[in-house]
Design a protein around this nucleic acid. Structure first.
Length: 191
DNA sequence: CCTCCGATGTGCT
DNA sequence: GCACATCGGAGGC
């Protein structure tokens, strides 16, 4: 499912009136990936065992994170949407990110990091289960209409902040792109 | 019911 | 680089 993740780079994602071009994603396998929520099959992770193309939203540390359920080599694979460049609705994105903040957020940082991405796109738990292939929904993935790709190499590296399986290079991003969030290793990362 | 802790973000040293 | 805010999921009792 690394290939599914790579394939999302450069794709346009629209959320509640804001469109971004994805610049950074992370692949998560299913029950065999200890870093995935699908590692334990519960009510929360159940959506990843369903059909691909749906939105999996979860909360962590008071933030939202968004994933696309994909068809991987095994069941329950998903791709975490980590960063993107705003290509439409920048005013709305600024307003969402600027709320409850003293200094304005630079445009490059509006959708940088999974929590910030969701905030800029207005994605909340209410969007859980959205069919991203349906243009009528407030959150859509434009796999056909991908904009011009950044002239930057696609690089793979370890996933950010995961404790388990911390050395798998399943994070993909346009190397050097200003929207890409920095790498941080989990303090107690094992293998 | 209670405890632990994380696929985070921000600010400060 | 480090601390900490913050809150629901998951599992133990």
């Amino acid at each position: 499912m690394a290939e599914q993740a790579r394939g999302l780079l450069g794709v346009h994602l629209t959320g509640h009136g804001v469109t971004i071009q994805l610049t950074e994603v992370e692949a998560y396998a299913g029950p065999d990936d200890p870093a995935s929520h699908a590692y334990t099959r519960t009510a929360r992770s159940e959506i990843m065992y369903g059909p691909p193309g749906r939105l999996y939203v979860y909360r962590i540390h008071g933030h939202h994170c968004a994933n696309v359920v994909v068809r991987g080599s095994g069941p329950a694979a998903a791709v975490l949407l980590r960063a993107g460049e705003v290509v439409d609705g920048v005013e709305l994105a600024r307003a969402r990110r600027g709320a409850a903040r003293s200094t304005p957020v630079p445009d490059d940082r509006l959708a940088s990091g999974p929590g910030n991405l969701c905030r800029a796109l207005g994605i909340t738990m209410a969007d859980l289960g959205t069919d991203l292939t349906d243009p009528a929904t407030p959150v859509t993935l434009d796999t056909c209409r991908r904009g011009p790709l950044p002239e930057l190499p696609v690089t793979a590296g370890p996933r950010v902040g995961v404790r388990r399986a911390a050395d798998l290079s399943w994070r993909f991003f346009f190397d050097g792109h200003p929207t890409v969030s920095g790498y941080r290793r989990h303090p107690r990362a094992g293998g």
